[in-house]
């Protein structure tokens, strides 16, 4: 898993609430058997008319050239619906390292963390401050200090992440290695039941 310590970047503002994972990656792209290449289909049906890459929808923020960056900022309840980890893979493959929202759906949050994409939960008021910024604005996310800052204004908030997951993200460790190292303990647990 890729590690993440600190990032300063412009961001793409997605002012839509309840973005479900069917929008992030439509079901027809779930027929793959690898984790590769999902980025080009991220928000596929919001990006293109009739699934046609030559017809980008001008009103969708991903198609507005002034917006770019490694940070996605979305309105509340981001990632609800299906548990498909393909949603996290597509966000990561597109190039995002951080997703900011005032509220994340549980399964998506875990899936993002398991793929080195940091979900940062901010207050509604702070989210509105971010949305009020222009396309040139940058955000700085410092995982060690657990802070997110709007660099223009200096406005800053702290965010929560448990110490275990923080260590994993900072160092690029994954849970599966941890669990593999626990096999004897797990076998002992099974016996004692």
């Amino acid at each position: 898993m890729q590690s993440l310590q600190k990032i300063t970047s412009r961001f793409i503002p997605l002012r839509i609430e309840n973005v479900d994972t069917d929008q992030i990656i439509p079901a027809r792209f779930l027929k793959a058997t690898t984790k590769l290449g999902f980025g080009k289909n991220l928000f596929r049906d919001w990006r293109y008319e009739n699934d046609d890459e030559t017809k980008p929808k001008a009103d969708f923020v991903f198609n507005q050239k002034q917006f770019s960056g490694d940070i996605l900022v979305a309105a509340k309840n981001f990632g609800c619906g299906s548990s498909r980890e393909h949603a996290a893979w597509s966000i990561q493959d597109y190039g995002f390292k951080v997703v900011v929202s005032s509220f994340f759906a549980d399964i998506f949050k875990n899936n993002a963390l398991n793929n080195g994409v940091l979900p940062v939960t901010v207050t509604d008021a702070f989210l509105q401050q971010i949305f009020a910024e222009g396309a040139e604005a940058t955000l700085t996310v410092d995982l060690e200090k657990q802070t997110i800052t709007i660099d223009n204004t200096g406005a800053s908030e702290t965010f929560d992440i448990n110490a275990y997951k923080k260590t994993c993200m900072l160092n690029g460790y994954d849970d599966i290695d941890y669990l593999l190292s626990m096999k004897e303990e797990i076998a002992a647990f099974e016996k004692a039941r």
Partner: peptide, 18 residues
């Protein structure tokens, strides 16, 4: 409860999830 594919791999590896 539902899990992601990384967690499916966790259960394959250890019969546990975090």
């Amino acid at each position: 409860f539902g899990i992601g594919t990384s967690e499916v791999e966790m259960v394959f590896a250890s019969q546990c999830v975090m």
